[in-house]
Amino acid sequence: MGVIELLQSIIPTALFYSAPLIFTALGGVFSERSGVVNIGLEGLMVMGAFVGIVFNLTFADVLGAWTPWVSIIVAMIVSALFSIIHAVASVSFRADQVVSGVAINFLALGLGVFLTKQWYDKGQTDMVSQPFYTTDIPLLADIPIIGSIFFEGIYITSYVAIILAFFAWYVLYKTPFGLRLRAVGEHPMAADTNGIHVYKIRYIAVIISGAMGGLGGSVFALTIALNFSHATIVGQGFMALAAVIFGKWHPLGAMGAALFFGFAQSLSVIGAGIPFLADVPQVFLLIAPYVLTILALAGFIGRAEAPRGNGVPYIKGSR
């Protein structure tokens, strides 16, 4: 197998596996940068996957080829609404943010499977009839070599994810809103003194993470899983959380980490077909993202430092 054929099989698969991670990790960056730890990313993805699949199944006949796109938008909205629970608990009710996130994970899975059983009378839904399909991107796919590696047989959602990462970077680092959001996460009291509404910014950040988690979950469901059950989302949300940290709480860093984790996942899927990887036990590729995240946190791969106000409820008037 030549190098180009090798890249042709690896890169589209890596992009395909990364897209849901990128979306969700970007959401995690917003939430954590504003000072709210979001262990609930997993649950937000579950909610997104559930809504995406159910909407797709219900409206496939009406909306035709547009179904997957409308599905992910609806999933975004519902997950954004769902994440308000986490915002209320961790911002207004001063709950432990990690505990609230754990509860979000339980609640999303419980609700998803409960409603699936009620609506479909079985533990999993049918396969969707209108998932996302791979396409060749016009013009770009005609570029020699690069075109066939990057732009042929690709899911458009992967590129939407990468573009959104740059957009998130712009919002966080080049707009007043982004500056405020980061200030709230680093030093909420100083931000408050300067007239920034800490609670409002944190609510918005958590809701953004809900929308992005829903997007990630629904894209995962409509490209990879194609149905919903209790085993649709198993750990992708936590992997996205790992990408947030491995990417040092930076949108582009998180995107890079998500691409790398997607790459590692795709290797564990197609590794058997690649000469020098066929002998590596699959388990090493499976645990690689998690081991690397621990090493990154421990400072072996550049120190990863959390925003200073992360995880601490802000109480007005306290020092």
Partner: peptide
């Protein structure tokens, strides 16, 4: 599920809500 037709995941929802309420003990 067998005796009342209710999916057993209801209990997972209840447990999640209990966690929320305990965690929000401040309120």
């Amino acid at each position: 599920p067998t005796h009342a037709g209710v999916p057993n995941e209801l209990v997972d929802i209840i447990i999640a809500l209990i966690i929320f309420f305990v965690a929000s003990s401040y309120i």
